[in-house]
Design a protein around this nucleic acid. Structure first.
Lengths: 153, 153
DNA sequence: GTTATTAGCTAACCAACTTAACGATATGCT
DNA sequence: AGCATATCGTTAAGTTGGTTAGCTAATAAC
């Protein structure tokens, strides 16, 4: 009873590892944010800007899953820290573009790249067939999640 | 430039899938919470109570990574919804035990079990060697994360 | 048996969201 | 062309979930 109070929770090793990764990811988000002096949401915004280039506040809101009003705050904070700036959108004067500052991008990449390189390194140690197995597993897990959320969460 | 504004972000398929899973997990946490009418933190507390049985507020705070003051609020909300109740700890009269209500546990499991069963199902479709590959991959990823966080996050 | 520590709570505060309303621009319709 | 409608970002006001600091009660240490 002390070690297994609820028999329903008998997880496989892979499942436990996945859970640990999810937990580590949360710490990572805090850590990443700390690197730029931001909260996780603001850092996530930076990630989108780094990956996709300048984005409108509306698009940023959509990607972050928050209201456009909240994104105004995100941009205010990023601008306050000189991580990004507002520029007018030449094609639509209602809209604007949030442009990441190169120096901040560099700093963020300093944190992000070791992670992605490390992840890639793990994959590189696997052969083609093994990578396929991993892909199959992850696809399966993603499918299970999507199904529970009602296809497309 | 439109499709690949930053060449630094060339992710492998597995990495993209892992990212998607992380994203789905967040939706899942909201979804789970909604099932009990709670926020993700409160649901996470329920998960710990379900897995480990009654816990003290302090232990709950430690596991959730929030202050004990915040946990007072968590327990207040769970009690308000009759998902758990406070009981005195027979061994230490300063302490108390947060006990999950069976009916709420049942409702939470209704949501959780399909997920864990689904995840287990994905694993069941792999043979022994393949499962070892998955474990190796996930261990590697976890190690990379831990390393970046400075061993033990 | 006093002193120090621990447990949980309250109080006061704060950060990050939400919805609603608003001004400015763009789009669609006739 | 010109008016009605929709869209974009912002502001304003309110809510939520967290923080730290300080308190009381109970236990542990010497």
């Amino acid at each position: 009873m002390a070690t297994a109070p609820r028999p329903d929770f008998a997880f496989g090793e892979a499942t436990l590892l996945l859970r640990e990764i999810l937990k580590l990811t949360k710490s990572m988000e805090l850590d990443m944010g700390a690197a730029l002096g931001t909260n996780p949401t603001d850092f996530a915004a930076m990630q989108h800007l780094m990956e996709s280039g300048p984005l409108s506040p509306g698009e940023l809101a959509r990607r972050l899953g928050v209201s456009t009003a909240a994104v105004t705050g995100v941009i205010d904070r990023l601008e306050g820290l000189s991580h990004a700036r507002r520029e007018p959108d030449p094609d639509d004067r209602r809209r604007l573009l949030v442009v990441p500052e190169p120096e901040s991008v560099r700093r963020a990449l300093d944190r992000l790249l070791p992670l992605t390189r490390g992840a890639q390194g793990v994959l590189d140690e696997l052969d083609e067939d093994e990578r396929a197995v991993v892909t199959r597993y992850l696809s399966g897990i993603a499918a299970v999640y999507r199904e529970q959320l009602g296809i497309e969460g």
